[in-house]
Design a protein around this nucleic acid. Structure first.
Lengths: 112, 112
DNA sequence: TGGTCATCTGAACATCTGCTCATACGTTCA
DNA sequence: TGAACGTATGAGCAGATGTTCAGATGACCA
């Protein structure tokens, strides 16, 4: 069974922990950034707005796979798109996403 | 087949995309933050340094499960620990981790 | 209008992930 | 020394995830 050692610290932490729902939301955002394909999509969109087929070329996976992943990113409000005839032009939803990406890159560079 | 539409944009993006290895590293960092249990561990450690059993109490999962997840976090250099007798006291590896967490919380709050 | 193109979607499948359980190891203390 | 404790780890399993494939939709153009 679990024996608590520093019950004061545990109590302090439990007092300020975000709610179950909140934790899941945060985890969901990071999860969206945790796949190599989605990351490449987002890194590309942080430079240029692109249609699905161009994103497929950039990422090196099929347009279908890109479309599936864009759905994940749309659901998390990380990207938006605009229709242009038969094409869909995607871009990052806001600067916040770019900031998160930059932060991730920075941390990754630290560990050689 | 994939038909490129804006070949200039694709070329520009490909020119600045991080390497395969780099992308995987960044994805790995975000992946470490993408699980609710690991997130709770990190959020707790951003307030207090804690031993494994106290982290189990905070997160509400078994000490074994916490230990498994701490291994993931250690491997990604997100936490460090120090032995104190039979206990292992964990803390965040650096301020960068806290920054990433704060950034994630901030973004999560935006989407209501 | 028929054909092609860009995109989207659901099903199927292989892989990955996180938990539990059993077990092992080192530390503490009676 | 032996028992209890805190932690770590491997195997196994259920559920999640990412890709492919097939097919559908809507837009463009001959």
């Amino acid at each position: 069974m679990v024996q608590i050692v520093d019950s004061d610290a545990v109590a302090r932490v439990l007092g300020v922990q975000p709610s179950e729902h909140h934790v899941r939301t945060i985890a969901g955002i990071f999860a969206a950034l945790s796949d190599a394909t989605r990351l490449r999509i987002l890194l590309a969109l942080s430079r240029e707005q692109l249609c699905v087929c161009d994103l497929a070329a950039v990422t090196g996976v099929s347009a279908s796979a890109v479309s599936h992943q864009l759905r994940v990113l749309r659901d998390r409000d990380l990207v938006t798109f605009e229709r242009d005839g038969k094409r869909a032009i995607y871009r990052l939803a806001d600067d916040h996403v770019a900031t998160l990406l930059a932060q991730g890159r920075e941390h990754a560079e630290e560990q050689s």
